[in-house]
Design a protein around this nucleic acid. Structure first.
Lengths: 195, 195
DNA sequence: CGCCAAAAGCAACAAACGTTGCGTTACGGC
DNA sequence: GCCGTAACGCAACGTTTGTTGCTTTTGGCG
């Protein structure tokens, strides 16, 4: 009984090939527009004061499209936050652990010095408990890598997390004004030399 | 011209005495009910999925009362988060800086080990940028105090923040499972001894 | 005890939100 | 180019949210 085309848009007959997702052209445009809209709005109003219709209007897109694609505002924000971080950028690799970590820390601080990224980090913090989308996990992996490739590492990966990443993230979230050009170097110095 | 009692609830004639705030009885009950409702809901559903009407119903209170008192959901959550922390509890005071800091760190970890407090912290993080209600500021004050009352402090208040408070808060928010009974001692040790 | 006004309740309302069904566009594959 | 259908747009709808004017309760104080 293949008749009665109920067209429920599920389980296509050629199930094995591919669902034939659509990634180019218009979809991509919508995606980009929504992303920038979210970033702008989150920067302007803070993550708590943004709504889906707002984003839709700013992006020149119908709210329905957003609801259908993401379903949820936290989901959407999380997706954007995680995406924005790590486009597989090259990491510092001078052979000197301390130098690498300093450069790396500067990079992170630089990244979060923009209002958008800081706001996205805060938004991510709010949903960190429930969804697995921890946007900081990559940092942990990077720290582990830095330490692992050093012969006799004077610090552990955990120490890098605790005394370099954690202070930076903490200050970005709660004390943004307290970060300046010397922060990265100071933290690295305290990590290695002890004050 | 004291006449024409327009009664706009502003600038009472006896401006100097007091606006005659009302703190006892019913108000206090509502406050308590709302607080526990927020805590329960935030624990159950995560900070992003809580709404004012929800809280009102759970608390057995009219939504209007909440809107009038706090005006805003972020405001309300923030208020609760900051309140919950420090009811002027006594701080460790053994005379030994290291011992005091250890006890203090253990206290903080203990506090955030409950789901409610962790969730409230995350909620606070989301709104940290905009409103001044930084629920961590008390911690900063306490750290400063600890250091200030020690004759020749081997660490600065900033170092306590960066290497003791920050790692704890960071882990509570992003890596809650990574905290155990040894964390406080380890961090203090790393702060003082260097690994 | 009795007054005054702060704070809570109530009810009705406008606005915003999110869902659903259906028509239209246009990507991807042939 | 042509077709099938994924993804978007549109419009209508029910629900939820937040506001406002008013009444009722009741805490604080003489």
């Amino acid at each position: 009984m293949v008749g009665m085309e109920t067209q429920l848009a599920s389980t296509p007959d050629t199930a094995s090939t591919s669902p034939a997702k659509r990634t180019g052209g218009r979809s991509a445009l919508v995606l980009a527009a929504v992303r920038t809209a979210v970033e702008e709005l989150i920067k302007e109003r803070g993550p708590e004061r943004v709504t889906v219709p707002m984003i839709a209007e700013r992006a020149g897109v119908n709210p329905t499209s957003i609801y259908r694609r993401w379903g949820d505002l936290p989901t959407l924000i999380n997706e954007i936050a995680t995406y924005r971080l790590d486009p597989e950028r090259p990491l510092p690799q001078s052979g000197d652990l301390r130098g690498d970590l300093t450069a790396w820390a500067r990079e992170i601080i630089e990244h979060y010095s923009t209002a958008v990224n800081a706001a996205l980090l805060r938004a991510g913090a709010a949903t960190a408990g429930e969804s697995e989308s921890d946007c900081l996990r990559n940092r942990r992996a990077e720290a582990t890598m830095f330490v692992a490739r050093t012969p006799n590492p004077p610090v552990t990966a955990d120490q890098v997390i605790d005394h370099l990443v954690a202070p930076i993230i903490y200050r970005v979230i709660f004390l943004p004004w307290s970060i300046d050009g010397t922060t990265a170097d100071r933290l690295v110095a305290e990590l290695f030399d002890r004050a």
